[in-house]
Amino acid sequence: MTTDAGTDTDTAAGTAAGIEVRPVTGYTGAEITGVDLAGDLDDAAVQVVREALLAWKVVFFRGQRLDHAAHVALARRFGEPVTLRSRGGASPAEFPEVETTADRLELAGRYGMDRDEWLERRRHTLVRGWHCDHGARVDPPAATILRAETVPPYGGDTTWSNLAAAYEGLSEPVRRFADGLRAEHRLGVGYQSRPGPDAYLEHLQDHQVATVHPLVRVHPESGERLLFVNGYYVERIMDVSRAENARLLEMFTEQITRPEYTVRFRWEPGSVAFWDNRATVHLAPADTGRLDHPRVMHRVMLAGEIPYGVDGRPSEPITGAPLHSPA
């Protein structure tokens, strides 16, 4: 698989009549038309989507008519869906692979906070919300398929950034330096606790999840090098001083969130976003609390492998079970 997005997608599209892949920005995101995701996708259509995903990191579909069963069936065409051990009450009990993002609205109340305080304590810096899904696990998902059921008439957009482009955008000496670094990713990093008893802090202490990942991971399919860092999970870069750690994290997180590497998606009912969780970080919207409209989304994640670095060393778990347990 080459990194020439136009060549790969055009070639594959020629074998799947009616499918068009239209890039959205220069680095990240493509919209795919001519595909019914609820139908029986043939191998040629699956290949078009796969190649577009590898090339553009996130692909978008509009006007889809997926229910939970079709959503899971779609995911199985591209990998093995993850079954989460814990979900909120809004997720469908009969489809353990599907997680409903309305569950997030339950969390603040569960720990004695309103939503604004919840976000403030978890996102105390401007880049805090950027993340890959379950990045503190030793086996983060390979990909995520998110579909919109109900969206507000405005707001609620999601943004993605391309970690391969971010790595390539570094100078050559800094790339060499980053290639040899490893970082600790930990659930709950940077959470600002409440005065007195704090139920969420107690939850984090009782359910710790942490892994040492390579700062630059190698994509298992494309071979690209990815600047695998984000503000949501990264605790520290290993084997550097505290002062050096702060400055290096600031430099790398600024790099992965540079506007030219990002794409912002406006959701509509029936929209689907399918992203490579290995090669992107994303930013969920923080404006939905200001909107007097529901936003109900459903996601299915695909099981991923343990990352490895440029030197071939795999990630090493510190605490917490892997995300995915094969049947």
Rank of each mutant, 00 (worst) to 15 (best):
M1D: 13
D4C: 04
D4S: 12
T7D: 15
T9V: 06
T11M: 15
A12N: 04
E20T: 15
V21S: 03
V21Q: 04
V21T: 02
V24R: 13
V24C: 13
V24Q: 12
T25L: 07
Y27S: 04
T28G: 02
A30K: 03
G39L: 04
V49R: 02
E51A: 08
A52Y: 03
L54M: 12
L54V: 07
L54K: 12
K57T: 02
K57D: 03
V58Q: 03
G63S: 13
Q64P: 05
L66P: 02
H68Y: 13
A70G: 14
A73G: 09
A75I: 00
R76W: 03
R77M: 07
P81A: 03
P81S: 09
L84D: 06
L84I: 14
P92T: 07
E94M: 09
F95A: 15
E97P: 01
E97K: 05
E97Y: 09
V98D: 01
D103V: 04
L107E: 03
G109D: 00
R110E: 00
R110H: 01
R115D: 11
D116S: 14
D116N: 12
G129T: 05
W130K: 02
D133G: 06
D133L: 09
H134N: 14
G135P: 03
A136W: 01
P140L: 09
P140I: 05
I145K: 07
L146F: 11
A148K: 12
E149A: 15
T150G: 03
P152G: 08
G156T: 05
G156V: 06
G156R: 01
D157V: 11
D157H: 12
D157M: 15
N162L: 05
N162F: 07
A165V: 11
A166T: 05
Y167E: 08
G169I: 02
L170T: 07
R176V: 11
G180I: 12
L181G: 10
E184I: 10
R186F: 01
R186Q: 08
Y191T: 00
P197L: 07
L201A: 12
E202S: 13
D206P: 13
H207T: 14
A210R: 04
H213M: 02
V218W: 00
H219T: 01
E221W: 11
E221N: 08
S222F: 06
G223W: 04
E224D: 13
E224R: 08
R225N: 11
R225D: 13
L227P: 09
Y232H: 11
Y233M: 12
I237L: 05
I237V: 12
E244R: 10
E244K: 09
E254A: 14
I256G: 01
V263A: 05
W267L: 11
W267C: 10
E268A: 09
G270C: 06
G270L: 06
S271G: 09
V272G: 06
V272Y: 11
A273T: 14
F274R: 03
W275P: 02
R278V: 11
T280E: 07
V281M: 00
G289Q: 08
L291A: 12
H293G: 10
P294I: 04
R299F: 09
V300Q: 11
I306T: 15
P307M: 05
Y308D: 11
Y308Q: 13
D311L: 03
G312N: 05
G312Y: 01
P317I: 08
P317G: 10
I318M: 14
T319K: 15
A321V: 12
H324M: 09
A327C: 15
